[in-house]
Nucleic acid binder design. Sequence first.
DNA 1: TTATCTCGGATATTTTCTATCCGAGTTCAT
DNA 2: ATGAACTCGGATAGAAAATATCCGAGATAA
Lengths: 160, 160
Amino acid sequence: MKMSSGVEWALHSCVTLSQSREPVPAARLAELHGTPPAYTAKQLQALSRAGIVHSTMGQVGGYSLTRPASEISALEVVQAIDGDEPAYRCTEIRQRGPLGIPAERCSRPCAIARAMTAAQDAWSRALAQLSIADLAADIDADSDGTAMPDIRRWLTTTRS
Amino acid sequence: MKMSSGVEWALHSCVTLSQSREPVPAARLAELHGTPPAYTAKQLQALSRAGIVHSTMGQVGGYSLTRPASEISALEVVQAIDGDEPAYRCTEIRQRGPLGIPAERCSRPCAIARAMTAAQDAWSRALAQLSIADLAADIDADSDGTAMPDIRRWLTTTRS
DNA sequence: TTATCTCGGATATTTTCTATCCGAGTTCAT
DNA sequence: ATGAACTCGGATAGAAAATATCCGAGATAA
């Protein structure tokens, strides 16, 4: 059970985008984060499809958040990249084999599936109550308040 | 982020083993559950390596639980099959790129990694407080108390 | 002692994820 | 108005992992 590596890049990209009102090209985000440019672009396309970022075409185009960072949860970003289907998929073993239970008597999900769903719900809740703005604030605090200003400065001044 | 399909078979196998004091061959478990025999055996080998089941060789051999089912958590079984490494792996993006932070100033994990670890901990806790005995009881209750007696009967009487 | 049954690790096949490239569309400068 | 440059978007190769399988090593019972 492992998560796509693109999730890490997408979360960092969202934090970075929260520091810019201007659109930021995918190539610029890849340069800032030291990630493969073409593949990073692909993750941003997934965020666009999920309605988390908005893409602007043309010479001064790029990506920007569609909402305030405080209203975008970490869970949304993870699901946009990694998919929203649960990690555990019940194949209804209880209905198979010599002791198989007829489907008509299987109104509730299997007890094992219920346990897995409960665990995944706990995981989802932990990520749902955390916003991109929270992450940005935490990252900034870790660097004694220099990280976010540095990003803002780099985005506005540096020219590739 | 998806879990190995073998997890489902392993959990059902443990529930079944909790109903038998005699060793049960892998082929028998596969027949009962309607799963691929060879691949099912592989999952049981993983459980054996993790110390959850004990294998007995020879003509009347098979697998049996090493401990009472009430002392085996669902988390142990999941980790035995799916691995115990966390789903999210931080590649230290903060140290890369033009604004990379020197490693010496990265004593704490990245804020994003901390959030992911917290979510995974919530998931783990939910599975750790659930035992194989609990699952067996829930499955039995779903069937109005017929499922576990049926399994015990099938294991002792039926002959392939 | 022999034959039969068990597990265990090493071996193909399929699927998924990772990474990349080139075309469609839009904006800005001329 | 025109052209040029820069952007995103989906379709295309390559790599890694999971899935599924087989046959040999070992132990028990007859």
